[in-house]
Structures are given as structure tokens and as C-alpha cells.
Design a protein around this nucleic acid. Structure first.
Length: 328
DNA sequence: TGATATGTTATCTT
DNA sequence: CAAGATAACATATC
């Protein structure tokens, strides 16, 4: 369920809370979820976080990165002194961390010098000197209070975290094969090398594919970042029947669908993602887009536009919701 | 109890 | 070979 808006929401949170921390140790409780040698990242500092489609890249200050995919039920939750008492918004497992579903624990530390150092060295006031002296005296205490954790929780254990050399990120199969993604966030938000979906490219992808349009939207090799929720909502918004062949979509309809895709992804972002199932942000808080689904999950309810009963079928093995009257 | 939910990947089929 | 279809993965919930 974490799709582009959810992963982007998490990315922004990780930038705020995780960046600047040094990885002191990694406890891997379920080995199959952690790929690679953890010794290559222990001791390194997280310097930035990027996203490719539904994937995350934690950039480190050495030659490695941590590539992350949450699949359906993965969570990355940050905890330190200030946030340790926050409860986790989930419908399963415990509210406190680590929980029954915490499979990987990153033990982190921020250096006291990062917050109190540098600038004060440039100043020569007595006050600055006194503060610096006190900071040194308290450094041991501060080190302890600066201890933090990043918990990887995953109910279904489908996700993964991979240790990858920085220059090999785009060679990880999932990233290498990913199609262009809809441009809904500032360019700085995505990984270098990740293509963006233009309207012309979108028309071309539709024309070239023999797939049913909804299955195509969700195919990460064709377009990156769209999953079941936003595919359903975008097709509803554009008034297009999800069962239609992509090839049969006219260029006018393609434009409408393109706009609808950008609109629903942006709506998802504005609500901090959707937490219909397990998604939570970096602090373990729910998003709110689930309260604004246009059609996803509304089986047997009335269509908001015309009042017809919403149908549910299965396309490409996934639940598909649509209004027979409004989507043609 | 068995069907269902989900995203990607492996494998089978055309 | 390629594109598409389908099973597999894990596990709580209906």
C-alpha cells in the first residue's frame, strides 16, 4: 500500500529526523529482509534520503547507500529521547517499539559536536567559550541522550533493505527496470537517473501496451510509483473504465487520465499518504488520504457523482473498484 | 474454515 | 524471445 505519496511522505520525515545520525549498529532479526554486509554501513552517517518510485535510498557519507522497499506492510519509524513515548498507529501488533513485527533495528547516534560545535568556535565571546566548555563537560551525558533508533517493522515480511555501493544503486533490478514516474514532487526529491513521466511519454506508453489500462498504470516497469489505490482513484477521476485496453484510450482521454494521476497523487501527498492498512510516517503517525478515497475500497457504496452502486471486480489479480455509469 | 488483501518476482503460457 | 497471465510470498482479518 505504500505508493508514491506514502513513500514520499516517509522520505520527508526521514530527511527531518534521520539525516545527521551515525549508524552505530544494526540488529537483524529476520535475515532474509536485510541483504548485504552490514559492516559496510556501520559507522557511516546518513547524509540524505531519496526516492525512486516506491523505493527509498538512504545516502551515507561513505561509498554505500541503504536501498529500501516497504512492499505492502513495511514501516520505518524513528525514535529518540523526545519521541520515544509516541505510540504507533497500527491496527496490528503492539503500539510500542520494538514490537513483535520489528525485524531490523538501527542503533543511531548524533554527535554532540554537530549541534554545539563549529559556529561557536568562530566566536570568541566569553559566553560562547563557557558554553563550549560546558558542552565538553557534558559530552558523555549528551552522547547518551542523543541515542536514537530506526525500527523496520514488517508484518508480512515482503520488504527489503539492501546495502548497495553508491554507484550501483540504479543497477538494483527494481530500480533499473522502473519506468518514468509522474512528476508530483520537486526534482530534488527523486534519485538522479530516475526519469519523469511527460504527457507525450504517457501517450506513447498507452499506445504501445496490450495491457488493460488499470494493470498498465500499476506496472512499475511501465510507470513508477502508482499502486492499487491511486490507480483506482485516477481512473475514476478521469471517467475511464479500468477494463479498457490501454491502446484504445484516445489522446484526449490520455490527457485527462494524466491530469487525474497527478491530481490524486498530489492529494495523497497533501494528506500525508493513506493508512488504510499499515502505512505510518517516520514518527509512526497515520496519513489521512484513506478518508478521502474517491472510489478505492467503496464496494457497494453509492458513486459520489451519480449515485450508482460501485462495482468491485478483479483485474491483474487485484481488487478494482469502478462506477459503470461514470467510467466508460 | 477458507477467502481476501497487498507489491513485486518467479515461473508458466501464449 | 517477449509480452502477458498467474502463482508465490506471509499473516491478520472478515
Amino acid at each position: 500500500m505504500p505508493e508514491l505519496p506514502e513513500v514520499e511522505t516517509l522520505k520527508l520525515g526521514l530527511r527531518k529526523y534521520l539525516v545527521g545520525h551515525t549508524i552505530k549498529d544494526i540488529e537483524v532479526k529476520v535475515p532474509k529482509l536485510f541483504v548485504g554486509d552490514k559492516r559496510n554501513v556501520i559507522g557511516a552517517k546518513v547524509v540524505d534520503v531519496k526516492r525512486i518510485g516506491k523505493g527509498l535510498i538512504l545516502e551515507l557519507n561513505n561509498n554505500y547507500v541503504l536501498a529500501v522497499h516497504l512492499k505492502m506492510t513495511g514501516q520505518l519509524v524513528y525514535r529518540d529521547e523526545k519521541t520515544k513515548n509516541l505510540t504507533l498507529s497500527v491496527k496490528v501488533g503492539g503500539e510500542t517499539l520494538p514490537s513483535k513485527y520489528t525485524h531490523i533495528i538501527f542503533k543511531l547516534k548524533t554527535l554532540a559536536s554537530r549541534r554545539s560545535g563549529q559556529k561557536s568556535n568562530l566566536k570568541t565571546t566569553r559566553l560562547a567559550q563557557a558554553l563550549a566548555k560546558r558542552a565538553t563537560q557534558n559530552s558523555k551525558l549528551q552522547d547518551e541522550s542523543n541515542e536514537a533508533f530506526l525500527y523496520y517493522n514488517d508484518l508480512r515480511q515482503f520488504g527489503w533493505i539492501k546495502v548497495v555501493k553508491k554507484d550501483k544503486v540504479m543497477q538494483v533490478p527494481f530500480f533499473k527496470e522502473m519506468g518514468p514516474e509522474p512528476p508530483v514532487v520537486p526534482l530534488s526529491g527523486t534519485m538522479e537517473g530516475q526519469a519523469l513521466l511527460t504527457i507525450n511519454k504517457f501517450r506513447e506508453i498507452l499506445q504501445k501496451s496490450g495491457l488493460v489500462v488499470k494493470v498498465l498504470l500499476m506496472d512499475q516497469k511501465k510507470i513508477g510509483g502508482i499502486g492499487n489505490i491511486y490507480a483506482n482513484d485516477a481512473l475514476y477521476k478521469a471517467g475511464i473504465d479500468p477494463r479498457r485496453k490501454a491502446k484504445q484510450i484516445s489522446s484526449k482521454e490520455a490527457d485527462k487520465l494524466y491530469d487525474a494521476i497527478l491530481a490524486v497523487l498530489k492529494a495523497g501527498l497533501e494528506f500525508g499518504g493513506s493508512s488504510d492498512e499499515n502505512f505510518v510516517n517516520v514518527l509512526g503517525e497515520e496519513g489521512a488520504y484513506q478518508n478521502h478515497f474517491l472510489i478505492y475500497g467503496r464496494k457497494s457504496e453509492k458513486c459520489k457523482k451519480c449515485g450508482s452502486i460501485i462495482q468491485k471486480i478483479r483485474l491483474g489479480g487485484r481488487g478494482t473498484y469502478f462506477c459503470e455509469n461514470c467510467q466508460r
